[in-house]
């Protein structure tokens, strides 16, 4: 593949820059160039939302965006949400309420939920369900995910 482009972006607060193939997907830039493997690829067609990250404060599906399109952006991934001993309230709530089983969709679910609570800090159940309609989970049946998001909303 001919040519490369330089992309520079702020990821979880740190500036990152690399020469990449123009067609490199943002999710692969995060996972393979930067080694941030918490963001997952589930469907490569933007149905499942496992790849959800924040771009300039909004949830986007990083499997459907080129790294070059995110040039200059501020990106937050699951690794930027909380650490051991200082978890994000959504991470705490997903843990407490068993909002995950295999964990594969979880980073994307947490990022999408964070986006919801930013826009709508006190959603009702229906609003949570609608907001998460672009994030698929096969394990939990969504019951405990919804419960966790509502609990995180209550806690904040």
């Amino acid at each position: 593949m001919a040519g490369s482009v330089r992309v520079t972006m702020t990821v979880n607060g740190a500036q990152q820059s690399a020469e990449v193939e123009p067609r490199l997907l943002l999710v692969h830039f995060l996972r393979e160039t930067l080694g941030l493997t918490g963001t997952h690829v589930g469907c490569d067609t933007s149905n499942c939302g496992a790849c959800t990250v924040h771009l300039n404060g909004e949830a986007i599906k990083s499997c459907t965006l080129l790294a070059a399109q995110a040039d200059g952006a501020e990106i937050t991934t699951i690794e930027g949400m909380g650490q051991e001993g200082a978890l994000h309230p959504l991470q705490e709530a997903f843990w407490e309420h068993h909002g995950l089983q295999c964990g594969y969709c979880t980073p994307g679910m947490i990022m999408a939920s964070a986006d919801l609570l930013e826009r709508n800090p006190k959603p009702n159940e229906e609003e949570v369900r609608e907001a998460l309609a672009g994030n698929l989970c096969r394990c939990t049946g969504y019951h405990n995910i919804v419960k966790a998001v509502l609990a995180a909303s209550e806690a904040s």
Partner: peptide, 19 residues
């Protein structure tokens, strides 16, 4: 009990095959 497996999963620190 809360699950023992969850900390690595909620922090994006688990290692699936593609990782």
């Amino acid at each position: 009990l809360k699950r023992k497996e969850d900390p690595r999963l909620i922090m994006g620190r688990a290692r699936y095959i593609d990782d």
